[in-house]
Amino acid sequence: MTAIGAKPAAGAAMDIPSTIAGIILLLVIVGATYFLVGAGMMFYALIGVIVGGLLIAFGVHFVPVGGAPAAMGQAPGIATGVAMLAAGAGLAGLFGGAWAAEQGLVVAVITGAVGGGLMMAITCMFVTFIYVFGMGIPCASGKVAKDPITGDTQTEYKSQGTEGHGLPFVSYVGGVIGGLLGGGGGTLIYIMLLDVYKEALPGMMKALPAQVLPIAVSLAGIFAVGMFLVNAVLTAYNITGTIEGPHDPKFKRFPRALVASAVASALCGMVAILIVAM
């Protein structure tokens, strides 16, 4: 391919000094927020936002995405971009979670997770459907000889000159787990911010809680979308755009994405909370 064809020289190793610097930055941000808003609800909201970001980043690693070669049956996975597929699932989950927001944190987050998982389950099923009934191609992984879940051998089902194709069962399960984690993480960020805004906005804008509810919903919604995209793109950078699922060797890179996502979520979360705290 042309300009975007060249793969970055990113190694799979962790850069220890940078990671430590990242963790220190994380502690500084969390500490600064504690100093500014105290140990109240807002501080716990920040922790919730960080956890949500971690769930998203970890979840994106599970989503099996093959990029352009997958559309030609040259590589396994779903034929689209990893960040945006994860966003599609995560935001569908956020939709469900936001709907269930008044039923409490736990129910809402699990509803969001199930919404994301449902979206991925249906999508992955149709990917297999198209490969098998539309193109007559069985599923085969290129990275492992045996499916870790079902034990099916993969190599002989790989057609000549390709790296595998379709979604082997482990990739399907990975997709659903990715949707679950992404939907849950996005919803957690949304609910945390929504609670903060519902609490603080009436005083700040001198209005009744019911009146400022649309502002709280919109602010929390757009921040959840923004943070979701930041975390998903960071993770996409980590796996250089494609991954087969939890059995892919690239999956082992997740610790550094977790550090990156924790710092990014903490920073974005702090700013989002300080909007009403300052």
């Binding site: 064809g5 923004g226 960071l234 996409a236 250089t240």
Partner: peptide, 19 residues
């Protein structure tokens, strides 16, 4: 060559910019 599509850079920009 950042390994993923060009649009992701735009999404990243606005995800951080909106905050």
């Amino acid at each position: 060559g950042i390994g993923t599509g060009v649009p992701s850079a735009g999404m990243m920009a606005f995800g951080s910019g909106v905050i």
